[in-house]
């Protein structure tokens, strides 16, 4: 992955969130406080502006700039969670101009570990971890980008039957069952766009 691919990945992530912001808001109104679509879109639009104004000179630089904006502009729980993940990913990528697949997987592992630590979350709690963990595990086990796409979609849909035990949705108890988790859905966009960009370049 070079800096253009990293920028393309985050650009497509931002575009997909924008296209689906009402859907994300609707999902969040069912189980959360209804701000996920608005918050993510506001932050990622800022990421797009920043990428155009000050282009970074490495994939790590691209991700680091996005991390800073997520922390200060996204808000909600997703700001600190995406922000912490992207910050760890950026430091694992370092300032290398071209990042190998293995190094990217290692960086994404650091990212999901940062989310779990910041949110004190584990798998099965109906959160973004339920997409991040299976996605990163698949990459660690050598899945292709095509296979990753299927795994991510399945992991996202698996959150429908889960009962939320973390975050605002936990207050709903059993009433959270039957809804997709909005954080899992936005996380699925993050990995699906990554797979798409990587697939196209291979």
């Amino acid at each position: 992955m070079d800096k253009q691919m990293a920028a393309e990945w985050l650009k497509r992530f931002a575009e997909t969130v924008e296209k689906n912001k009402e859907e994300l808001t609707k999902l969040d109104q069912a189980v959360g406080d209804g701000d996920h679509g608005i918050n993510m879109n506001r932050g990622l639009q800022e990421v797009l502006r920043k990428m155009e104004e000050v282009p970074a000179d490495s994939p790590g630089g691209v991700v680091k700039a996005a991390a800073m904006i997520c922390i200060s502009k996204v808000g909600g729980a997703s700001g600190p969670l995406y922000g912490s993940a992207l910050m760890k990913i950026a430091s694992a990528l370092g300032d290398e101009e071209d990042v190998e697949g293995k190094q990217l997987t290692k960086a994404l592992r650091d990212g999901v570990d940062a989310i779990k630590k910041r949110g004190r979350a584990e798998e099965g709690e109906k959160t973004m971890v339920d997409v991040w963990e299976p996605a990163v595990q698949a990459l660690e086990q050598g899945s292709s980008w095509q296979e990753l796409t299927e795994i991510v979609k399945k992991a996202r849909d698996n959150t429908i039957d889960m009962k939320a035990t973390k975050g605002r949705a936990a207050y709903l108890g059993d009433r959270s069952i039957g809804h997709l988790d909005p954080g899992a859905v936005s996380s699925s966009y993050f990995f699906l766009e990554l797979a798409c960009v990587m697939e196209e370049s291979s």
Partner: peptide, 8 residues
């Protein structure tokens, strides 16, 4: 999330 932002 107040806790997470305080942590940061």
């Amino acid at each position: 999330s107040a806790w997470m932002n305080a942590e940061i």
